[in-house]
Nucleic acid binder design. Structure first.
Lengths: 215, 215
DNA sequence: TAGATTGTTAATCGATTAACAATC
DNA sequence: TAGATTGTTAATCGATTAACAATC
């Protein structure tokens, strides 16, 4: 209930808190104050406390936060305490890279299948993960639970595949295609538009050069 | 000069305007009003006009915006009117995927070399692009202009390589490693933290489920 | 000219920061 | 208890939206 009121900006920051807390844990650090974390992360202590308090009081006055406890609590908030079954549509370079990514499994994201249209690729595997014909997507979804579908295909194909996924009841799409997807309200989409990221870098680089020139 | 005052939120949206204008062009559309674009993009017309006016008056009262002109102007703002020479550190799955990405060259991003430490990979090519030993990074940078360096290596290696890049005068880093980089003020970093993106999707999926349950 | 739509100012909204009382 | 640090309210800041005069 409280969750729907939490702003996008706060959610954007949560995984970064999670990453820093994980690092602190592996350094053997047991407690941390918002002030110390503020120094590490280069965000204000006030923002850290404000952000965390959206989800409840995880700290203790005069002490700070227990690193492991807070790490686990944020993990639960992010849904990392359950296993998500993931499929990847597109077994090209990007799809293969994502399937091979070892850290995902560590966080509870289990890739169970890739799908492709290329006859040479179909029947091969990536690690243990089979590459299945895209034709059989509906059959697969009818028989296997899938929580997240990853689109690593060109935008021309992405829109149609997204519709098929939604029709089969998939509720979360991780979209690497360079297009916006229109989906029902109960389906969530997270876009990774790499070319837009590169354009922002290009913009910042150009701007930086100009500043240097006029300083 | 005016550029340094433009907020991150505006820059974030520019590539998306660029993408929609490109689509309009390929549809043969010659002019568009902020109102029509608003309907397409699901942002307010007011925001579109406000955003564009940070860079100058591209429209005409009573007419709207010339699609091709605006597309080209935004391209210039994003620095897409010049060729950026790009290298990729790490010729694993992700680095290879990025090197193969055909759209980058279309936008003026030219990948000239990959670097790796794996002896099996060194000497191979990705398309026309050679895979060079990471040892020779400094030599390469001394002899070839490089505008953007892409880090597609584990975070343990990324911090050290970033320092070497900065020492050689590279001013822009596209960082896929799961770590924050500390760089001088005149170096720009664009982070692509895929695991954080996936965590946000997981959060939204969990939240969505809960809402559905209580509605 | 009249209609349409921008550029731009003013109003609103939301997010961040500061401050401090509560409390461990 | 005294010191430290949170949780939380209030103040500030910035971004978005609304409104409308300017103008094509």
């Amino acid at each position: 209930m409280e969750k729907s009121t939490i702003s996008r900006a706060v959610i954007q920051r949560l995984p970064r808190y999670y990453r820093y807390l994980g690092e602190l844990m592996s350094e053997g650090c047991q407690r941390i104050s918002s002030g110390e974390l503020s120094n590490r992360m280069h965000v204000t202590a006030s923002q850290i406390r404000q952000d965390l308090n959206h989800f409840g009081g995880f700290g203790q006055q005069g002490y700070g936060y227990n690193v492991e406890y807070l790490y686990n609590e944020i993990g639960k908030i992010l849904g990392l305490d359950t296993t998500h079954r993931v499929i990847i549509i597109g077994a090209g370079n990007l799809g293969t890279a994502l399937a091979n990514y070892p850290n995902f499994e560590k966080r509870g994201f289990l890739v169970t299948a890739l799908f492709d249209v290329n006859p040479e690729r179909i029947g091969q595997t990536v690690g243990d993960i089979p590459i299945l014909p895209l034709d059989t997507l509906e059959d697969y979804l009818a028989e296997h639970p899938v929580h997240i579908a990853t689109l690593a295909i060109p935008k021309t194909a992405a829109v149609g595949v997204a519709e098929r996924l939604v029709a089969c009841g998939v509720k979360a799409i991780w979209n690497f295609a360079h297009t916006d997807l229109t989906v029902p309200d109960d389906v969530v989409v997270e876009n990774v538009h790499l070319s837009e990221s590169l354009m922002r870098l290009s913009y910042n680089l150009s701007t930086q050069k100009k500043e240097k020139g006029t300083d």
